[in-house]
Design a protein around this nucleic acid. Structure first.
Lengths: 124, 124
DNA sequence: AATAAAGGTTACTTTGCGGTAACTAATTGA
DNA sequence: TCAATTAGTTACCGCAAAGTAACCTTTATT
């Protein structure tokens, strides 16, 4: 990755910006990580809700649908009553996860310094 | 980085989420990459505007101020007329850039497949 | 006397993300 | 007969992010 490639990749309304925007919303990464936790075991909708207690039902649905559209999760419907719908991560999200992890790692290393800087800036 | 750390790092309203949210807004990465392009040469406000033509003056100001608050850029004022204000990246953003680059690299590798999936999903 | 220059600020408006609450389906158990 | 269960959908609302346009400052130039 050289700088020229990156530069081109971020021009206004480019697909890269678009792709990253869709996973940097409020809930996508949280959902992906929750699914990842289960080690390839499919997870039901209700179980996701239990593990992410502060997400609303609507946003869980919307987030899962968007993730499915972009090929990050698969959705399997079982026609039972009450309904059973199971979600699993695709290979695509598994290949994404290390990159996210490296970002989070960076944030963990730098968070104290950043929060301090932020305070100093607002003190003046 | 194991999964437990990542999990903890994403709990609701945690500082990590907060830090990442502030650089995943509409303009921050674009500004950081534009500054990076100049190879440690300070860049003036007007020059940033020229290189990011679709950003509004207000949003360029707001973005730069936020980046300064969090220690990603330094802002140097020269009391001349007309005014001169120069921006440079800090070591902090230079240490962040490789992680972003790896994400963008991933997006480049996967973009065609993702866009295809998205089309297929909407065709049905 | 008017204009341009750089780097903003301000007020106002628009957009869209996300939250809330109510409603649905079909079946089982009390 | 009623409630509970799962996995949603729908309509409505609020807030914050972002866009637009006008205005400001001081000095040099025409």
């Amino acid at each position: 990755m050289n700088r020229t490639v990156i530069e081109d990749a971020l021009f206004p309304d480019c697909p890269i910006r678009n792709i990253l925007a869709r996973i940097s919303d409020k809930w996508s990464l949280m959902v992906i990580y929750t699914l990842d936790k289960s080690e390839k075991e499919p997870v039901r909708f209700k179980e996701l809700q239990r593990q992410i207690p502060d997400i609303s039902q609507k946003m869980l649905t919307v987030t899962l649908r968007t993730l499915e559209e972009d090929g990050y999760v698969t959705r399997t419907i079982y026609h039972e009553v009450p309904p059973r719908v199971e979600y699993t991560l695709t290979e695509r999200s598994r290949s994404l996860l290390p990159h996210i992890a490296s970002l989070i790692g960076w944030a963990l290393e730098n968070r104290e310094a950043i929060i301090k800087d932020r305070k100093d800036a607002n003190r003046k």
